[in-house]
Each structure stands twice: as structure tokens, then as C-alpha cells.
Computed example of a mutant assay.
Amino acid sequence: MQDSFYNHVKSGEKNLNDLEGKILRYIVSLRGDIEQATSKGIAAHFYVAPNTIVRLAHKLGFTGFTELKHSYLLSLERNRYTIETIPLDLQIIQTKDLVHDITINKVVDAIEHAGHIVFFCSGFSKYPCLEMAEKLKIMGKNTDTLSERHVMRHYAELLGPDDLVFSVSISGETEVSIDATSIAKSRGSKIVTMTGISKNSLSKLADIPLFTVEKQVRFGNMDLDSRLMFHYVFEMIFERFFERTQQAEMES
């Protein structure tokens, strides 16, 4: 049996540079549309030569783009309805290993000093953000949660150095989140990102990047990925913030 597309990606991704990683994520995002895609068309999308796409395929262990495309199409057919079998306990352990105690303290410092906290999110990622925002609001912080494309961009243009932005996305490649976060960063806002563990464009914008172990769930073309680890990391952050707040009140 031939190795699956994702086995090739797992073994070869470490050999990719940043641009090749971005091209690979774009190819994966095409899903069924990959059938009509060509190496020349993908190269034109990224303003590179077609042999860049061929080199990417070689680094992943394919003979060329045609074999890569065929492997991906087979993978899509096999996995139209899938759920990764990562045990919940393992997700928590691995995510906890990714989010160091020092990092949690840095995020809590940022929350304490922020005059205003904004959450940029979309899809199911908005639910852990809404919960965290409401908890912080109860604790006296001024918070907003934004998930609509045009509102996020407009709001970002109004932010400044006194604002803290949490930008949350499983893939870290959600265009609207990258766009709004880039604007907020250019205006001096502090940026905390929360994404899956893979290299991604959003985390590169962060003052404090947070990574979680994601669990993929697919129903056809629908993204039903678990956001449970987002809830988990937000809970760790909130508990630390709550403890500090209580200690400060006792000392005052």
C-alpha cells in the first residue's frame, strides 16, 4: 500500500522553507479543486517559477506535482468523513508541554496592563473567545469579540498601544485574521496568537505566540475541528489571572 499524502507531508515538511510551507498549505486548502489545479497555475498564484512546485513535490517524496495531486485526491476520497483518534488526555498533555509557565505569565502581564482587550476569531474558534472575553469582563476588563470580516478590519484600524489583541485560528492561515492582526500590530497593539502547532502566518505576527495540539474532524468539506484545546489554554490563562487578582486584593 502506498504511503498516504499526509505521511509524505509528515516526513517531508521539515525540509520545506517558509514559502514552500505556505504553498503546501494553499494546495491542501484547495481540497477537491486540486483536481483542476496545475503546477503552472499554482506557481503563478505565488509569482514563482513552476519548478518551485516540482521541487516542493520532490521534498515531500513525490516524483512530481502530478503524483502529489493524485495522492492528495486519494486521501480526500478516503477521508471524506474523518475524526482523528487522538486521545483527549494526550491532547491535554501535549498542549500543556507547548504552553510554558513563563508564557502564561507573559500573557497575564499583558492582560493586566491592557486598557482594552479584543479577540479576533472566526468559525467555531469564536466560542472559546466569547467565553474568555465574558470572564475577563466580569473581572473588570474591557473586552470585545469580533468575528465578522469587515468589522474586524475596521476595528483594527482604531486600535493603539493600550490595546491587547488575541487572534485565534486553528490553521493560522485565516486571511481575515491575518489582515486584521497585521493592522493592529502596525498600530502598536500587543498581539497574542493562538493556533495549531504547525508553522503558520498568524503566529509570526505575535508578540506572544501560543500553540495547541489540534484534533481534525472533517465532514465532507466542513471544518469541525475540535477547539477544546483553545478552551483549555484560555482556562489556564484565566486561572492565573484570577489568582493574581485575588492575591492583589488580599495584599491591598
Rank of each mutant, 00 (worst) to 15 (best):
E134C: 08
E77T: 12
N142R: 14
A133T: 13
S122M: 11
E131V: 15
V118I: 14
Y72C: 00
Y26P: 05
K40T: 10
L158W: 09
H116V: 09
A49H: 13
E148T: 14
L98I: 00
T63M: 07
A37C: 04
H70Y: 10
I102C: 03
Y72G: 01
I111F: 02
L90E: 12
C129K: 01
I104G: 03
A37F: 06
S75E: 15
T63N: 12
V28I: 15
H100K: 15
F120P: 07
Y72I: 04
L76D: 05
G123V: 03
A110D: 06
E77H: 11
F119A: 07
L136I: 10
V28Y: 00
G64Y: 07
Y72N: 03
Y47M: 03
Y26S: 08
G123C: 10
Q91G: 14
T85N: 15
T38Q: 01
E84T: 07
F119I: 11
Q91L: 15
G32E: 13
A114F: 08
L76F: 09
S147L: 00
A110G: 05
M152I: 02
E84K: 13
M139F: 11
L158G: 05
Q91M: 15
K141W: 08
N142E: 13
F120Q: 04
R25D: 09
E67D: 11
K135E: 13
L130Q: 14
S39V: 00
L73H: 04
I93Y: 07
H150E: 08
E84S: 13
K141H: 12
I92G: 02
N105E: 14
F119S: 08
A133V: 10
T82V: 12
N79M: 01
T145W: 04
P87N: 09
F65P: 00
V54A: 06
L30S: 02
L68R: 01
V108S: 10
Y47K: 14
A57L: 05
T103Q: 13
S39C: 04
H150T: 09
M152P: 00
A43H: 09
T52I: 06
I93H: 07
G41L: 02
I86N: 04
F65H: 01
Q36E: 10
Y155S: 12
K126E: 14
V108N: 10
T95W: 10
I93F: 11
E67W: 04
L24W: 02
E67P: 03
D109W: 01
V28K: 12
Q36M: 12
N79P: 02
Q91S: 11
V107Y: 08
V118L: 09
F46G: 02
D101R: 11
R153H: 07
N142I: 11
N142H: 14
H100R: 13
S71W: 02
V54F: 05
E35M: 05
G41W: 03
H70G: 05
P87L: 03
H113N: 14
S39Y: 06
V118W: 00
R31E: 12
I34P: 01
I23A: 02
A43W: 06
L130G: 12
H150Y: 14
G32V: 05
